[in-house]
Design a binder for these strands. Structure first.
Lengths: 167, 167
DNA sequence: TGGCATAATGTTATATCATCACAATTAACT
DNA sequence: AGTTAATTGTGATGATATAACATTATGCCA
């Protein structure tokens, strides 16, 4: 059976609604873990949520610096590392970039769809995929701690726009 | 049902046997594609095969340079890019490193198991996982071109050795 | 409240990874 | 041999990330 008419995560996304919920959830979760969402950390998360894109550390830094926070790389890297460690932000390896997690409530292994046509990134997930990774780990006697799953290709709009050419 | 007694890809691997086969296969494939395995490219592949590890571009460069090839970064990066494009080498995103593909005969989406205890990397694959990615792509109307699947954790030996502590 | 320990922030400096631009060489094909 | 395209080499620079250490803020509790 085909799955129900999924929304297209690249284009059918109510961002304002999700941002608020994510931020609220972040506070709850961090409190439970005894961690502090300090001003820099909070702004860093907000910046990523507002942009709704994968941003490089130096892009984030520029925004933070312009708002009166420190201007040196560690300022951004530390805030990002904190958020990543608490599952509020993911690192997109292929882009050397960071994106706010949009479903922090689930204990998930995120999957990123990276469109090379429009450079947008969509976060999704799949229980089949988690199961497959679990099986792989078992049969290789490997203890999983973190997974990176990134799919590079073209989103539907870019395909429609004829962005076929593959480098 | 458990899968049959899989070999542990970290420790039960006949490397000499596979290296020769891989190299031989590389020649065949490249000829078919009209691409040339020049001396630098060949040595780059051999170096990765011999080390049987994921190596950084600058590590490869050092080896190449010591053997009389050029000493500037582009020398290594170009050879690696060529090999990656032809599916003979994979890039391990999490490590900013490169590893020779050990099963270049299959049209595969590789999966890397990265042990943070001993820093070894094992390449594997899974048809379940490929299927899950295919399903995800379909339900998100996404056209897949390349996939990155990397699993960070501990190999069996490192678990046995008590490398439990998680940063 | 004052004093201590810890965590967080800020800065300078530097390490690491990757690419640009252009010259020199080599290979492939008339 | 002559022409073109691919490949290689080099210097310079760009982009990403961390080390080391001083300073400030926070939490705790005597």
């Amino acid at each position: 059976m085909p799955t129900p008419p999924d929304p297209d995560p690249f284009h059918d996304h109510d961002h304002d609604a999700c941002s608020g919920a994510v931020l609220e959830h972040a506070l709850t979760r961090l409190e439970a873990e005894g961690a502090r969402l300090t001003p820099v950390r909070r702004r860093t998360l907000e910046i990523l949520l507002e942009s709704h894109r994968a941003m490089g550390a130096y892009d984030v830094l520029q925004r933070l610096s312009a708002e009166g926070f420190g201007s040196q790389p560690p300022v951004a890297y530390r805030a990002l590392e904190f958020l990543v460690n608490h599952g509020l932000v993911h690192r997109v390896q292929r882009l050397n970039a960071y994106a706010a997690c949009l479903s922090p409530q689930k204990d998930h292994s995120p999957v990123f769809l990276i469109c090379r046509g429009c450079d947008k990134v969509a976060e999704t997930g799949s229980s089949d995929l988690r199961a497959a990774i679990g099986g792989l780990a078992t049969s290789n006697r490997f203890t999983v701690e973190r997974t990176t799953v990134e799919i590079l290709g073209l989103c539907s709009q870019c395909v429609a726009a004829g962005a076929e050419a593959r480098a």
